[in-house]
Amino acid sequence: MNEIYTRNVPGMTEVLSKASVGIAGCGGLGSNAAVSLVRAGVKDLVIADFDVVEKSNLNRQYYFLKDIGKKKVEVLSDRLKEINSECKIKVFDKKLERSDISGVFGDVDILIEAFDKAESKQWLIEEWSSKFPSRPIVSGNGIGGLGKNEKLSVKKIGSLYFCGDGESSEEEGLCSAKVSIVANMQASLVIELLMDK
C-alpha cells in the first residue's frame, strides 16, 4: 500500500482506490473537494470546468498566484498528481451541456455537483437523476456569507444529497472557510457513500 495512506481509517484505502468520482465544476467547491478526495485515496477522478484561474478565485479556490490565466482543470489535475502521482485524472475543459453528462460522467460511481449558478445546478441534477436514478449526486447548496456553522447540514432525498445551509447565496459574498467546509462535507459524504456501497 502507498505510504501516503498509512494514517487512513482502516478499510478506506482499498475501497477508495477502486472508486471513480466525477466533479462538475472546479471552483470553490470542486477544487477543494477534489484535493480532499485524492488525499483520502481516490485515484480515479473526472473533473470538468471550462474556466481559467482568475485572481478573484484565490480567496476560496485551491489555486495559487502562479496559476492565473491557466485552465482550472489542467492546474487541478497537476496539483492532484502532486499529492499522489498514481492518480488518473480525466479532464473535460469545455462548458458542460446536458448532452455531455452521460459521455463525460457515465463511468463514475458518484457525482459531485459543484456548479456556480442555480440554473446549472438544476439542469445537472435533473439530467443526472433521469440518466442514473440510483447513482448518488452530491450537491453544494447554500455556501454564501459568513459562519452560521450550526446551519450546515446534509439533506438526503433518495439518491440526491444537498450539503450546505440551503438558504445563503453567493450574492452575500463568499468566505474561504465556509466554502471549504461545504466542499469537505461533500467529499466526506462521497467517501462515506463509497464505503457503504
Partner: peptide
C-alpha cells in the same frame, strides 16, 4: 414519491393523492 419531476413537467404533471412531495430551493454559489 421519490421521482424527480423536471421543470418542463411542472405545468402538466398531476400530483397523486397521498403523495410525499419534497421541494429544495437551489442557491447559487460553487
Amino acid at each position: 414519491n421519490g421521482e424527480l419531476i423536471r421543470k418542463d413537467q411542472y405545468g402538466t404533471y398531476l400530483v397523486p393523492e397521498n403523495s410525499d412531495v419534497k421541494v429544495v430551493h437551489l442557491m447559487s454559489g460553487g
